[in-house]
């Protein structure tokens, strides 16, 4: 536990070491927030509600999603794949430490940094300019739990697609494909609720909804009581499944590991 805490601190510090990258990133998120908010508001001029979201819900979704992008690290994460590709994974394996545990702790240290410095500023800006919905205290608490699980689900998936580098000489295709899948199925690009019924149900069943859409739904009070427990339970289930899958892949890879670069 102490070790995980120490690793997590390094995860935080690694990103805190580049404050200007954070500023530039938060600026970008804000710009995209405005862009998406104005597009959705234009759409809502003709409709009162879409998929159970009214205009304020939709705009809140926009700013929450923009604020969560980096916290859940939705875009390409290559660190493990690069270490496999350049052979550094050998040095990781020469240490008395499980690589998955290491990267998970590291990611759980990184996430709060991004939440505070990449997430909060754009959200505050959005809240100042637009009319947003705010959660009840219980929903706020549930949101924090759900967001934490979102980080773990996202990490679990990132670890899995990064592990492809053990088998593929060129892993970039897999990473790009995986990132696109997450952006589409998580509700990052447009809310899952806007999709036709069958697709929407499929998205909610897949792990990716748990990365963006589920925490947003909870914030907006769209999940109460049993439904709330259900979606958080599903997130937890997917987190366990993906972490388990990552473990299996890592174990198989180390059984037949070809460390590249001699």
């Amino acid at each position: 536990m102490r070790l995980d805490w120490e690793i997590a601190k390094r995860g935080w510090r690694r990103y805190a070491a580049y404050p200007w990258a954070t500023v530039a990133g938060a600026f970008t998120n804000s710009i995209f927030g405005f862009l998406q908010a104005y597009i959705l508001l234009a759409v809502y001029r003709h409709r009162a509600a879409i998929g159970g979201f009214d205009a304020a819900d939709a705009v809140t979704y926009v700013w929450l999603a923009q604020s969560m992008i980096m916290t859940v690290y939705i875009f390409s994460w290559w660190e493990l794949a690069w270490r496999i590709r350049d052979g550094s994974i050998a040095t990781d394996l020469a240490r008395p430490l499980d690589p998955q545990r290491y990267w998970l702790a590291y990611d759980l240290g990184r996430a709060p940094y991004h939440f505070l410095f990449r997430g909060l500023p754009p959200f505050v800006l959005g809240a100042l300019v637009f009319h947003l919905h705010y959660p009840s205290p219980l929903d706020a608490l549930a949101f924090v739990v759900s967001l934490t699980l979102a980080v773990v689900v996202s990490f679990g998936f990132r670890f899995v697609y990064n592990s492809a580098a053990f088998w593929l000489l060129d892993f970039r295709g897999v990473v790009t494909l995986s990132t696109t899948v997450v952006i589409f199925f998580s509700g990052m690009a447009i809310p899952i609720r806007f999709f036709p019924h069958a697709l929407r149900e499929l998205c909610y069943a897949l792990p990716f909804a748990g990365v963006i859409q589920t925490p947003v739904d909870i914030w907006l009070g769209k999940r109460e009581g049993l439904a709330l427990a259900g979606v958080i339970g599903l997130q937890l289930l997917w987190a366990l499944v993906l972490i388990g899958l990552g473990r299996v892949l890592l174990a198989r890879a180390t059984q037949r590991l070809v460390v590249q670069g001699g």
Binding site: L3, E6, I7, R10, R14, A17, S88, A90, R95, P96
Partner: peptide, 22 residues
Amino acid sequence: RVQLWWDLPLLDSFQLLRHIYK
């Protein structure tokens, strides 16, 4: 290969290794 933590001060790497190796 770089086994130290690239973005962190040297001492930080040592302190983390202390915990990794207990």
